[in-house]
């Protein structure tokens, strides 16, 4: 499974970065989103994956069952997902405004004058 995850992470990084290198605002954003996915999955795999044992304390118990998944990477990823979402939303609106102001969606064509 780790091998599979490594392939997925690598694939997400590769496609995300390739998209960001296209000269298009929208693809830049799509790339950013994929980059975020890639990083999250990277943390997920680096933290070690466990099937079907969520870090929850069952009623009547005082600790989760032995072998439960590591909750810390999950918490980190959750934080990262939310931050990523906020940042991408801002970037998306920014990109939209950039398009409105410059009239092009080619980042290379907007030499910032003044």
């Amino acid at each position: 499974m780790e091998l599979l995850l490594a392939v997925v992470v690598g694939g997400l990084y590769a496609s995300g970065l390739y998209l960001m290198l296209r000269r298009s605002l929208v693809k830049l954003l799509l790339g950013l989103v994929l980059l975020g996915h890639a990083a999250n999955l990277l943390i997920f795999s680096a933290g070690g994956v466990v099937r079907g044992e969520a870090p929850l304390v069952a009623p009547g118990e005082i600790t989760p069952p032995p072998g439960a998944a590591d909750p810390l990477p999950q918490a980190l990823i959750l934080t990262a997902i939310v931050i990523g979402f906020a940042v991408v939303s801002f970037a998306a609106v920014l990109a939209r405004r950039v398009f409105e102001v410059t009239g092009t969606d080619d980042p290379a064509a907007m030499e910032n004058g003044s």
Partner: peptide, 23 residues
């Protein structure tokens, strides 16, 4: 060129995942 660069980056990150021994 972009594809090669991005691909290489993907490979490096995948390698990172593989060499980390959790726990």
């Amino acid at each position: 060129g972009h594809a090669l660069l991005a691909g290489a980056a993907g490979v490096v990150m995948a390698l990172f995942v593989l060499v980390v021994v959790p726990g």
